[in-house]
Amino acid sequence: MITLGHYLVLSVAIFTVGTIGFVVRRNLLVVLMSIELQLNAVNLALVAANRFHPASHAGQVTAFFIIAIAAAEAAVGLAIVVSFFRLRHTVRTDEADRMRH
């Protein structure tokens, strides 16, 4: 029998994988994809929680907004990647260390 716990553990697992990807990968594109993974994991948790507390649609509505914002984030993020590539001719995150100065 599948309970809310199953969904939440799955959500945590995907979220963790996304976080590890965000931290360890050196490719800006993959880092952005990791963020998408994290957002998806959160969405999954929200929708699952909504399913097991169905008095309102708050979880689903929030997930809907998160999808919209994720789309915006992807658009802007990828624009930044393109811009960064033009500047440095690479998408290595190591090169994006100007924040130090």
Binding site: V12, A13, T16
Partner: peptide, 22 residues
């Protein structure tokens, strides 16, 4: 990070009461 995930998963996997689907 894996341990973060592990702790979180352990905490969330607990049983909880459920409600009827409207």
């Amino acid at each position: 990070l894996l341990s973060v995930g592990g702790v979180l998963a352990w905490a969330l996997a607990a049983e909880r009461p459920e409600a009827a689907l409207p």
